[in-house]
Design a binder for these strands. Sequence first.
DNA 1: AAGGTCCGAGCAATGGCTTGGTCGCCCTAT
DNA 2: ATAGGGCGACCAAGCCATTGCTCGGACCTT
Lengths: 232, 232
Amino acid sequence: MGGVNQRKNSGGATAAPVRRQGTAKRAATAGSASERRDHLVKLAAELFARKGFQATTVRQIADEAGILSGSLYHHFDSKETIVDEVLRTFLEDLTARYRAVLETAGDARTALTEMVRIGFGTLEPHRAAITVMQNDWNYLRSLPGDRFGYLVKAEDEVERMWVEQIKRGQAEGLFRADLDPKLTYRMIRDTIWVAVRWFRPGGRLNTTALAEHYITVLFDGLATGDRTSHGA
Amino acid sequence: MGGVNQRKNSGGATAAPVRRQGTAKRAATAGSASERRDHLVKLAAELFARKGFQATTVRQIADEAGILSGSLYHHFDSKETIVDEVLRTFLEDLTARYRAVLETAGDARTALTEMVRIGFGTLEPHRAAITVMQNDWNYLRSLPGDRFGYLVKAEDEVERMWVEQIKRGQAEGLFRADLDPKLTYRMIRDTIWVAVRWFRPGGRLNTTALAEHYITVLFDGLATGDRTSHGA
DNA sequence: AAGGTCCGAGCAATGGCTTGGTCGCCCTAT
DNA sequence: ATAGGGCGACCAAGCCATTGCTCGGACCTT
């Protein structure tokens, strides 16, 4: 009854193409066990992102996969287990990327710039997960047991990394000292993540453009000419 | 079957104290009809914000008010009607405030500053509504009929107001011209609204402080010294 | 008397999850 | 090579709690 990622089948070993099937009758020699599982997770993630976790029924997920709802429980032991996997995968990737950058970071501004790029960079590959995380954060956290306690843990770790860089930048004299590091971090984070709501992969702007645009505003501001506000 | 705000009782006229009661048996000489109704809406809004619209049951709302679930339907004809009222009230107040500021606006920078202040200013009085709007936006929009079509309409109107001011600022030479107005607006909006997730009324910072902090970063950026990026 | 407010009970639909069984692939021992 | 057992993937059917909502009548105030 811990907060651990449970799975039912312990995974085979073969490697065959996973054939997507609309509403076909049979699974047609599915690929490796975990491959099939991963596929289901992806389908579910899309639905969760589109309709919300609670509004998505296990029957809808099964439909999307061309199987019956009961069959889902061959792979997962609950609906929650599925979101769990969605979010966990995303958070692991994210924190790993941050850590990688911070190991080779130069000055604070460079580090922060890279971190912003990472943030926007995850927008595309993890669009569904980020959406779910935002919309259903409150609900998931409120679930009994700290089934999703790792959400808070991961968030805290990320916050530490950001705040550290901001403070370093202030100490180095690169960033204005009259700003609250934690507050500044939160605003940066929000700006990046919430973009997932309106960002559409094939649209006018790609994530790189978003990142550069924001980096510009973040460091130099909207105004022209000399800086006008108080502080250093 | 339109998208209109339905109500069942057309509201009386008396004015008596609305007594909050835990799980009491009787409603004890309730105040005026519309007062009672408004009270219920507020209770519901809090629950919606905390647990999400769908996760909140009508029984929970009734519990909070000390009545049975069925009795709710003397005031509202559906659960949706309740959120409807929550969101509509908020949006009307918001757009009204924006319009008021824009009528007496000076240059674009002043206008934008005021708009930012308005945004953060609504955080406290409309915390629940803003939370619901963010978390359940996708779901509500997906409901049959354009029951919540006014959500999109209101958003569009607000967007027009912001983008207009940004463009004006660029034309006046106050804002750097190398920024995408629409994109810039979205980032500003996101930063303000999403603050509702971590903002807590009695905390270290009040909404005014938040606003000033953000205004500083927004116009002058994080960096010290001369502006380094391209463009003017 | 009248009207507003709420109770008590319950209905129909929905949703998460179970259970028992089928089908075909793959590995292995003969 | 091949029969056969093991096993993963799925179906069919349904259980059961929950949920939004209904409805007739009781109670209270005016």
